[in-house]
Each structure stands twice: as structure tokens, then as C-alpha cells.
């Protein structure tokens, strides 16, 4: 039903933290829509994942394959973290000194766990770039990476199973017009690579 629903009193408290969504690189790359729930500066901003869930933060584990230091006054790192489906473009800048120091100490190739905020840039020629502003990056082992692939496969399938039934899922279906089978295939292919 689309009619207005009864609301109970506000339920959100300062001790809560935005969860870090599990999303494969190939899905994050397709993300185009970003929004805020309210106009005030303090309200969190989200991207809408094509499989149908809002996302303020991600947790990803993959292989750091490349890192580059850039900038003069405002030094920052640009890094590529690869999962079974594609590449996360990770940035660590002076606004997150802890992440930058962590990045400085890690040499590719290594398995890394990244916590960060997704952001979408539209280039002047109309292309979209989705990157992850790094909050932390640490070296982990292959076990953690494999664990993450399963975790992310499950989370992605759970989102696909929502099937337009939540407001975010319905919005994603309408805005992206993407075939859910493509993401199901992505999950399958990611899992298939784990078989040895």
C-alpha cells in the first residue's frame, strides 16, 4: 500500500553507526544515485546500490594491486583493490590521516580489508566514477578474503531477494532498470572462482 503509514516516535540515536554494506566491485561500479534523507548537514549521505539498498559505508576485502601517491600540498593515495568481480578505486587523503598512514605502510600485492565511504563523481563528459574514500585499510590473510567473498555473495543475494518489496529496493528497480539476473550471475561467477 502506498498510503502514508503511521509513524512511531524517532528511533535513531547518536550511539548508532552506519553499517558497512558488503558489495562486490562490479556492483559498486554501476552505482549512480546518491541522496540524503534530510537537508541538514549532519544527516548521512547514501548511494543507492543497484541491487536495492542504501549504502553509506562499505567493507571490502580484496587484493591491493597498485598504489600511487599523488598531489603536492594535499598528498593522497590512489589504490586499486581487486575482488573476484572487478576493481575498487580506493582513495586515502589527508582528511583521514590514520588511513593514509596505514596505506603508506602496505606494499602491493597483499590482501587488504578496506572500510570506507563510497562516492560518485560525474566527469565533464558524462562518465561516472565510483570511488571509496578510505577510513581504514589493513593487511589480512586469504582466509579473511574468502570469508568476505561468501559474506558479500550472501548479502547481495539477500538484497536481490527483496525483489522490490522495500522502498529502497523498489526505487533501485525503477531507477536502474537493471536485470537482477545479471547480479545473480555476478555472484555465481565470484563464488565459482573460489572452487579449487
Amino acid at each position: 500500500m502506498n498510503e502514508q503509514q503511521p509513524k512511531t516516535a524517532p528511533q535513531k540515536y547518536s550511539f548508532e553507526r552506519e553499517p558497512a554494506k558488503r558489495v562486490f566491485a562490479a556492483e559498486l561500479r554501476e552505482t549512480r544515485i546518491h541522496f540524503k534523507d534530510a537537508d541538514d548537514e549532519k544527516s548521512p549521505s547514501y548511494v543507492l546500490l543497484p541491487t536495492g539498498e542504501r549504502c553509506n559505508r562499505i567493507f571490502a576485502v580484496g587484493t591491493l594491486t597498485e598504489k600511487r601517491k599523488q598531489g603536492d600540498q594535499n598528498l593522497f593515495y590512489r589504490a586499486r583493490v581487486v575482488d573476484p568481480t572487478g576493481t575498487f578505486f580506493v582513495m586515502a587523503g589527508s582528511y583521514q590521516p590514520e588511513a593514509m598512514q596505514q596505506m603508506a605502510r602496505i606494499e602491493p600485492p597483499s590482501f587488504v580489508a578496506v572500510v570506507g565511504k563510497p562516492s560518485i563523481y560525474e566527469t565533464p563528459d558524462g562518465a561516472f566514477l565510483v570511488s571509496v574514500r578510505c577510513e581504514s585499510i589493513t593487511v589480512v590473510d586469504k582466509d579473511a578474503r574468502d570469508h568476505w567473498v561468501l559474506d558479500t555473495a550472501k548479502a547481495t543475494l539477500d538484497r536481490l531477494d527483496l525483489d522490490g518489496q522495500t522502498p529502497d529496493s523498489a526505487r533501485a528497480r525503477a531507477e536502474y532498470q537493471a536485470d537482477p539476473a545479471i547480479f545473480r550471475r555476478m555472484v555465481y561467477d565470484a563464488l565459482a572462482q573460489m572452487k579449487i
Partner: peptide, 12 residues
């Protein structure tokens, strides 16, 4: 938590 390969078959 250890990686659990049994989960893989279910997810596939």
C-alpha cells in the same frame, strides 16, 4: 571466525 567452505556450496 574461520572461513567455512561448507557455506560456499549453499551459496552457489
Amino acid at each position: 571466525e574461520a572461513y567455512d567452505p561448507a557455506v560456499l556450496a549453499d551459496l552457489l
